[in-house]
Computed example of a mutant assay.
Amino acid sequence: MKKISILGSTGSIGTQTLDVIRKNPSDFEAVAISANSNVKMILEQIEEFKPKYAVMYEESKAEELKSLLPKGCETEVLSGMEGLKKISSLDEIDVVLTAVVGMIGLVPTMCAIESKKDIALANKETLVTAGELVMKAAKENGVKILPVDSEHSAVFQSLNGENKRDVEKIILTASGGPFRGKKKEDLINITKNEALKHPNWDMGRKISIDSSTLMNKGLEVIEAKWLFGVEAEDIDVVVHPQSIVHSMVQYRDSSVIAQLGCPDMRLPIQYALTYPDRMETDFERLDFRKASQLTFEEPDLETFPCLKLAYECLKAGGTYCAVLNAANEIVVNEFLEDRIGFYDIPKYIKMALDAHESIENATLEQILKIDLDTREYVKKLIDNN
Results as ranks from 00 to 15, higher is better:
Lys52Cys: 08
Thr75Trp: 02
Tyr53Lys: 03
Ala62Arg: 14
Met81Tyr: 03
Lys71Arg: 14
Tyr57Phe: 14
Val77Cys: 11
Leu68His: 10
Pro70Ala: 14
Ser79Met: 12
Glu58Val: 09
Gly80Ala: 01
Glu63Leu: 06
Glu63Ser: 09
Glu58Cys: 04
Glu59Ala: 14
Met81Cys: 09
Glu58Ile: 11
Pro70Asn: 15
Met56Cys: 08
Glu58Pro: 10
Pro70Tyr: 12
Glu59Arg: 09
Thr75Lys: 03
Ala62Phe: 05
Tyr57Arg: 00
Cys73Ser: 15
Leu65Glu: 07
Ala54His: 07
Gly80Asn: 06
Gly80Thr: 08
Gly80His: 03
Leu68Asn: 13
Val77Tyr: 07
Lys52Glu: 15
Thr75His: 00
Glu58Asn: 15
Met56Asn: 04
Leu78Thr: 00
Ser79Asn: 04
Pro70Cys: 10
Lys61Thr: 13
Glu76Thr: 09
Leu69Asn: 05
Glu63Thr: 13
Glu64Ser: 13
Glu74Gly: 09
Cys73Val: 12
Ala62Thr: 10
Tyr57Gly: 06
Gly80Arg: 03
Ser67Trp: 05
Glu59Leu: 12
Cys73Lys: 11
Val77Asp: 08
Leu78Trp: 02
Lys52Tyr: 01
Glu74Ala: 00
Leu65Pro: 00
Glu64Arg: 05
Leu65Gln: 00
Ser60Leu: 06
Lys71Thr: 14
Glu74Met: 02
Pro70Glu: 15
Leu78Cys: 01
Lys66Val: 03
Val77Arg: 03
Glu76Ala: 06
Lys61Asn: 11
Ser60Glu: 15
Cys73Leu: 11
Gly80Ile: 01
Glu59Met: 06
Ala62Tyr: 11
Gly80Tyr: 11
Met81Pro: 11
Leu69Pro: 11
Met56Trp: 10
Lys66Arg: 15
Tyr57Pro: 01
Ser79Glu: 14
Glu82Ile: 03
Lys66Gln: 14
Val77Met: 04
Tyr57His: 08
Val77Thr: 08
Leu78Phe: 01
Gly80Met: 13
Gly72Gln: 06
Ser60Pro: 10
Thr75Ile: 13
Met81Ala: 13
Leu68Gln: 14
Met81Leu: 11
Ala54Thr: 10
Tyr53Ser: 12
Gly80Trp: 04
Glu63Gln: 08
Ser60Met: 09
Leu65Trp: 00
Leu65Asp: 01
Leu78Pro: 01
Gly72Thr: 07
Leu69Gly: 08
Leu78His: 01
Glu74Cys: 05
Val77Glu: 04
Tyr53Arg: 03
Ala54Val: 12
Lys66Met: 08
Glu63Met: 07
Ala54Tyr: 04
Lys61Ala: 06
Leu65Ser: 00
Gly72Trp: 02
Lys71Gly: 11
Cys73Ala: 13
Met81Phe: 08
Ser79Gly: 00
Glu58Arg: 09
Glu76Pro: 02
Cys73Gln: 11
Lys61Ile: 02
Glu64Val: 04
Tyr53Met: 12
Tyr57Cys: 03
Ser60Phe: 06
Met81Ile: 09
Glu82Pro: 08
Ala54Glu: 01
Cys73Phe: 08
Val77Ile: 12
Pro70Ile: 12
Thr75Ala: 11
Cys73Ile: 07
